[in-house]
Design a binder for these strands. Structure first.
Length: 312
DNA sequence: AAGGGCCACAACCGCCAATGG
DNA sequence: GCCATTGGCGGTTGTGGCCCT
């Protein structure tokens, strides 16, 4: 059985929004809210648009408190770190960047940041078309532990702890508590690996994403906190996502059970492994993440030398 | 000046999960 | 429990502007 279309495509306008349409939508939502029903909204607002299109337009463009323009170094760093940690979970990443939408971040990553990072690793290749993996991974010998001097810990004995593209829960703790206070003197370009090298990823930081006060992503809000939806247009008083830091480790445990099921794909085993070792990655897992991620320009030599080979 | 290529960004598409009847 | 509807998300595409030749 086919799925019913969300709107009558024949009578729906597509393409760029006109200023008049923007104004209609803004006016309607400011007066009436979304009414919890985007599908019905365009008709009520006098727009010949699909409800989904209205939602996207509002969340990505018209919503108050959106930031437009250049991403800061700190934002770059957060994106890098989170991408390396959780992959292309743009909505979660966006939840850490007040005023940014997942669409923004996705575009920014795909068009600029990815290249920026490649640029660094390209800078002094050992061989033509081959780039040495940053020390981050070289430090990550299987025996290294989370308490080692290596900024990021890896464990090979938790191979299923993290799986690329397995959705993360909100409670997935990514600790980058030093992230924003980190070295901002870095050059404009740095790699994901360098990010990881510089900023510890462990279990002390709580992602506020889907359960905290934040809107997620493209500004979309988790439907479990729908009561917040109408009242909240922006990210409130968060500063660079740091408001989440006030959550404690105990929150991880508190939130985990309910959210493990909320985000698809987490089996009981994964949840258990999470509790045991929230974000300790094995080298292979990192490799897999990057090689299978949208950042697929990174390819790993499967040898033991922890060398990253990048073809381009 | 023209046009071809590239880039950035907005918007769309399709799938999945949640929800309510 | 089933099914239809809706919202949310990530990937992909379309398009306009800029740059280079």
């Amino acid at each position: 059985m086919g799925r019913a279309p969300c709107c009558d495509k024949a009578n729906v306008k597509k393409g760029p929004w006109s200023p008049e349409e923007d104004e209609k939508l803004r006016e309607y939502i400011e007066k009436h809210g979304t009414g919890g029903n985007w599908i019905a909204l365009p008709q009520k607002a006098g727009l010949k648009r699909c409800g989904k299109s209205c939602r996207l337009r509002w969340l990505n463009y018209l919503r108050p408190n959106l930031k437009h323009g250049e991403f800061s170094e700190d934002e770059d760093r957060i994106i890098c770190t989170l991408f390396a940690s959780i992959g292309s979970r743009w909505s979660i990443i966006a939840s850490q960047l007040p005023g940014r939408t997942d669409n923004d971040i996705k575009n920014y990553w795909n068009t600029k940041l990815k290249k920026k990072m490649m640029g660094v690793n390209n800078s002094a290749p050992k061989k033509p078309h081959q780039v040495t993996l940053s020390p981050m991974l070289q430090n990550s010998a299987p025996s290294s532990s989370s308490s080692s001097s290596s900024p990021i810990s890896f464990k090979n004995n938790h191979n299923s702890c993290y799986q690329p593209h397995v959705p993360m829960t909100t409670s997935e703790s990514i600790s980058y508590s030093t992230l924003l206070s980190g070295n901002s003197s870095s050059t404009s370009a740095y790699s994901t690996f360098e990010c990881l090298q510089n900023y510890q990823v462990n279990s002390a930081f709580i992602l506020g994403g889907e359960t905290s006060c934040s809107s997620s992503s493209d500004g979309s809000y988790n439907n479990k906190i729908s009561h917040v939806k109408e009242a909240e247009f922006g990210h409130g008083d968060q500063i660079g996502g740091l408001s989440y830091l006030s959550s404690g480790v105990e929150d991880t445990q508190k939130l985990m059970p309910s959210n493990a099921g909320r985000v698809s794909g987490w089996t009981g085993e994964q949840s258990r492994l999470w509790e045991e070792s929230p974000l300790d990655y094995g080298l292979e897992e990192i490799k897999q993440l990057i090689s299978t991620s949208s950042c697929n320009n990174f390819m790993f030599d499967d040898s033991k030398t922890a060398e990253m080979v990048m073809y381009y």
